[in-house]
């Protein structure tokens, strides 16, 4: 199975088992975007035999809906709960990516997840990276997942 297909399956599994939200892939090769508006991104780095970056980019309203469903309580504004939830999503997806890229996740280390948020920010791509990106739809809106791997 292609990495993009595995990525889609991993996102769907996380959302169905942990967040109780349905997600569908709406874009299989979204245009490269480096500037985000009123958004939050969960980011995790990969090191070892395969280096790269995994990022999940959510518009704020989608991040609030995801966090609310994740925690089982209404979350109305961006803050530590949302940052933690989006970081943990990146962490869980990072674990799945490790398994996709190597035999049972051997020889790849994950960084601690971080988040970036704000009214306007840039997320720079790695130079000469192989990019797998997918756009997802939820009832609360759309979000983007991108995996950049050094060649």
């Amino acid at each position: 199975m292609e990495i993009s297909e595995q990525l889609a399956a991993a996102v769907a599994e996380i959302f169905s088992t942990m967040i109780m939200m349905d997600v569908t892939v709406v874009q299989t090769a979204p245009e490269r975007t480096s500037t985000f508006t009123d958004s939050i991104s969960g980011v995790i780095g990969l090191a070892g035999t395969q280096k790269g970056v995994l990022a999940l980019h959510f518009p704020v309203p989608v991040a609030l809906a995801v966090t609310s469903s994740f925690l089982g309580m209404e979350v109305a504004e961006l803050g530590p709960d949302v940052e933690d939830a989006i970081g943990e999503l990146a962490n869980m997806l990072g674990g799945s990516v490790k398994t996709m890229l190597t035999d049972k996740g051997r020889d790849i280390q994950l960084s601690m997840p971080t988040t970036i948020s704000g009214g306007h920010y840039d997320f720079q791509s790695l130079n000469d990276a192989l990019r797998h990106a997918l756009g997802f739809h939820t009832d609360a809106g759309d979000f983007l997942v991108e995996l950049q791997l050094e060649r």
Binding site: G95, K104, G105
Partner: peptide, 8 residues
């Protein structure tokens, strides 16, 4: 954990 490789 997300880390469930045989080695870990």
């Amino acid at each position: 954990s997300t880390e469930t490789g045989d080695d870990i």
